[in-house]
């Protein structure tokens, strides 16, 4: 009889502990996205992944951690450096694990909350799914998601970080991907000289040359590189001759529609000063080369005609898209504990 009472007490005690545990939810700190005035509504659905400080911090740790690659040598930051607007500077084609070289120039990571799809060919349909591509690529990280989750589950540091972010220390693919989005969604550039000019703020005084450059830009370039994101998010054929060493068909690879052959995503021009080399295969080192290409006879349907001075003015304007607040924001840098 005494034994039974004891059991009941034990059971009740166990049940109570469970109850307390179940309701002792850790509080997370909201960290909503800053949406600059006059910008369109973001594409990303935040109701499914509310941004928190803890989620951002987990995403940041993951972004800078080579644990994601097969041999722990490559992190996201290997090809996406903050100082160059999160792209791989000075490499026409980006390289990954064991020095293997890919087929395209890594894209800059900026203002991704407004992107409908990702990659030069738009093959990735949602920001959450983007990390899976470099992770599994045999020339980038060459790792499998299952393996990454196992590695993260073994690391004490990540148990704590997952618990803080999701109130559950168990690492899963879903949670890892959501945390990545939490970090990259905050990588937003909206404080360039151009932005200050538009907002009539201090530091936004344009020179005559920059003003003229903006006008020329709006006339000749803005149909694809539309303000304020400086991309229309579409895929366009920009008249580049085919590189026979790559034979990259671009958007066609995804849609299999002949009309999409040699179309590539229109990239943003923000921080373009530092994102060289340019184009999907990084074939141009200088902005002047890019403009020279677009003013050639057969590049675009309607030829752009620009004088040498006008090109200089456009370049002067493009340099106003540099955003040092973004490039040097400590929150986005390598996490030093």
């Amino acid at each position: 009889m005494r034994l039974k009472t004891k059991h009941v007490i034990y059971c009740l005690f166990g049940f109570l502990t469970l109850l307390i545990y179940a309701f002792s939810e850790r509080k997370t700190t909201p960290m909503p996205l800053v949406i600059p005035e006059g910008w369109p509504k973001p594409v990303y659905n935040f109701t499914k992944n509310p941004l928190t400080k803890e989620g951002f911090e987990l995403g940041r740790q993951l972004f800078y951690d080579p644990i994601l690659s097969r041999d722990s040598t490559i992190s996201c930051a290997s090809c996406h450096l903050q100082a160059t607007a999160f792209t791989h500077v000075d490499h026409d084609l980006s390289h990954g694990i064991e020095g293997k070289v890919g087929t395209r120039n890594s894209m800059a990571i900026m203002n991704v909350a407004w992107s409908k799809n990702f990659m030069w060919d738009g093959g990735v349909n949602h920001l959450d799914m983007q990390p899976l591509a470099p992770l599994s690529s045999s020339v980038e990280m060459d790792e499998q998601l299952e393996q990454v989750i196992q590695k993260l589950s073994r690391a004490k540091k990540y148990k704590t970080l997952f618990f803080k972010a999701f109130n559950d220390s168990l690492a899963t693919g879903q949670k890892m991907l959501l945390a990545f989005s939490q970090f990259t969604l905050h990588l937003n550039s909206y404080n360039s000289k151009y932005d200050k000019y538009i907002r009539n703020e201090a530091g936004g005084d344009f020179t005559e040359q920059e003003k003229n450059g903006l006008q020329l830009f709006r006339k000749h370039c803005a149909s694809c590189h539309t303000e304020p994101l400086f991309t229309n998010q579409n895929f366009e054929k920009n008249g580049l001759p085919i590189d026979s060493t790559l034979n990259d068909l671009g958007r066609f690879t995804i849609t299999r529609l002949p009309v999409d052959s040699f179309k590539f995503k229109v990239p943003t021009l923000r921080n373009i000063q530092f994102t060289f080399p340019y184009m999907h295969d990084g074939r141009f080192k200088k902005l002047r080369e890019v403009l020279n290409h677009y003013t050639e006879t057969n590049a675009l349907k309607t030829q752009i005609v620009l004088s040498s001075n006008e090109k200089a003015d456009i370049i002067a304007f493009l340099l106003t898209l540099t955003d040092n607040d973004f490039l040097f924001d400590k929150r986005f840098g390598f996490p030093r504990d």
Binding site: N45, N49, H126, T172
Partner: peptide, 24 residues
């Protein structure tokens, strides 16, 4: 469901039933 981002349970991409280079 294919365009709904990161999902959990049996739909977690870690189950190995998800394409990385062409989402789906």
């Amino acid at each position: 469901t294919n365009v709904s981002g990161a999902l959990g349970g049996d739909l977690d991409p870690q189950k190995g039933m998800y394409w990385a280079w062409q989402s789906g």
